[in-house]
């Protein structure tokens, strides 16, 4: 089956990203297709490469990045949500006059249309959050 995944909550504070990761990983291992993973609301916080959790804890951001690398996952961060919360790539830094970026290179920033398109193209949209 072809799935779209939406993640609405940030890392560590909330289990949504962990649950979404487990779901995505297991779906891929069972041969399902993940059309796109879309990060919305505080979910955009899952994409910052500056995250440094304690060594004995899972690294939520790197774990997503490794899964994406292995399966060529398309991981999209909502631009409007990212701008509000200070998640920045090169393009956004230039557009908004910021002196730094923080997004992990496995993620890309794009518009909400990417979420709507994913819902149209997939057989199921699975939303993780409260």
């Amino acid at each position: 089956m072809k799935f779209a995944i939406q993640i609405n909550e940030g890392p560590y504070q909330h289990q949504a990203s962990d649950s979404a990761y487990m779901f995505t990983k297991n779906a891929l291992e069972k041969g399902h297709e993940i059309f796109r993973v879309f990060f919305y609301h505080d979910g955009v916080g899952n994409s910052t490469r500056l995250t440094s959790p304690p060594q004995d804890d899972r690294h939520v951001v790197n774990r997503w990045a490794e899964l994406a690398e292995k399966h060529d996952l398309d991981m999209v961060v909502c631009v409007a949500a990212a701008q509000r919360r200070g998640v920045v790539d090169d393009g956004e830094a230039e557009r908004n006059g910021k002196d730094a970026t923080n997004i992990h290179p496995r993620f890309r920033i794009s518009g909400l249309g990417q979420l709507v398109e994913a819902a149209i193209q997939s057989e199921r949209l699975v939303v993780f959050g409260d």
């Binding site: 609405n8 919305y40 609301h41 409007a80 949500a81 509000r84 518009g111 909400l112 249309g113 979420l115 709507v116 398109e117 149209i120």
Partner: peptide, 19 residues
């Protein structure tokens, strides 16, 4: 919380997709 407002943003963008 911001859910209501950011939901509305999806509705407005999604309206362009003719669903």
């Amino acid at each position: 919380t911001i859910y209501a407002w950011e939901s509305l943003e999806v509705v407005l963008i999604g309206a362009a997709f003719d669903q």
